[in-house]
Amino acid sequence: MSAPRTRLLPWPLLLALLAVLVLPLTALAQAAPAAQNPAPIAEPATQGSALPALPNVSVGRIGNDPVSVPLQTLLLMTGITLLPSLLLVMTAFTRITIVLALLRQALGTGQSPSNQVMIGLALFLTAMIMMPVWQKAWDSGFGPYLNGQIDFRTAWDLGMSPLRAFMLAQIRDTDLMTFAGLSGHGAYNSPAEIPFPTLAASFVTSELKTAFEIGFLIYIPFVIIDLVVASVLMSMGMMMLSPMLISAPFKILLFVLVDGWVLTVGTLAASFNSI
């Protein structure tokens, strides 16, 4: 038997396969130089004039100098971090929280009311007491500044004036003179001459003293109840029974009967000298 012969593809089919392989390579070689040197993009036609320039973004001023946006952001974030400290040293919050804490301790109720409730009550009471001061500061200083009527320095002085007056109304003269001596200053001729650190330190110490005085007066009736209950238990020979366990219901009953929360809140609000 003879070996089978290999069948060759016809030459028209070979030419077609060769064209299919060569043509894409040729097109790719022609597209490479064009990709290295792209044609310039046609700019959109403008009608009459060039595009307007972007404005210089500056929304704040200190005096006559504009403040850039990054610096404004930095000042804003710094002010936000200092807000808790300012709330403690420049408002009625310090006195209110101390008195409420002493009241809860005098009642002997432990953590009832909770810290969240006490802080919430102190914040709302602080807002109520400080609202007239903040309103005066807004009307005289910060409101006209936002309306573009005065500059920042004038707005700051006018806005801080009601707050300084409120703090000065609560300060004792002895505390003010003590911190004035510590800072190396003598007697001040006017309230405007008092530096803010001296004013804030004097205000905090005066608030602490006033808060403890109010707390002492609140403690007296509850201490009397503890003494009476302890004397009764001693006379009955119940020395192993804790007087605090027996006196706690009587203290709560007395506090509820005299409407103690309203009396405490009203006394705290009335203890601040108005400006």
Rank of each mutant, 00 (worst) to 15 (best):
L257G: 00
L76N: 14
N64A: 13
L217Q: 04
I171Y: 02
M167Q: 05
P52Q: 06
L107E: 06
N64S: 12
A211N: 02
T210W: 03
A35I: 13
V265A: 12
K209N: 12
V117F: 06
V133E: 01
I62W: 07
V256D: 00
M239C: 07
L182M: 11
P55F: 00
A53Q: 05
I252Y: 03
T81N: 08
I224V: 15
M244I: 08
R172S: 09
F196A: 09
S235P: 02
A137E: 03
M90Q: 06
S161L: 12
V59P: 00
A34H: 08
L182A: 03
L199M: 07
L82S: 11
L82Y: 11
M131T: 12
L87D: 01
S235R: 10
I98S: 01
V57Q: 06
T126M: 09
D175S: 11
S161F: 08
Q105F: 12
S114L: 06
A35Q: 14
S68I: 08
L253C: 13
P4Q: 09
G143L: 08
A19N: 05
H185R: 15
V262F: 06
V117A: 12
P221Q: 02
T178L: 14
A270M: 15
A201I: 06
I220Y: 08
L75P: 10
G148W: 07
V204H: 04
A200H: 08
F255T: 03
L21F: 15
G215P: 04
A180Y: 04
P4T: 08
A3L: 13
A106W: 01
L217Y: 08
D157T: 09
T126Y: 01
E207R: 02
L102A: 14
Q135M: 15
P191M: 08
S58K: 01
T126C: 09
S202A: 14
L158C: 02
L163V: 11
S49W: 10
M177N: 09
I218Y: 03
A16I: 11
D175T: 11
D226P: 00
V69H: 00
L182R: 04
N189P: 00
P24N: 06
R153S: 14
P4N: 08
V228R: 00
S161R: 12
R7T: 15
R5P: 04
L158H: 05
F93G: 02
M234E: 00
A248C: 07
G143M: 06
W261L: 10
A248Q: 12
V99D: 03
P197F: 08
P44S: 13
I62A: 07
P12S: 04
R153Y: 14
S183G: 09
L8C: 11
L83C: 05
T174K: 05
A31G: 10
T178V: 06
T267Y: 10
F93M: 10
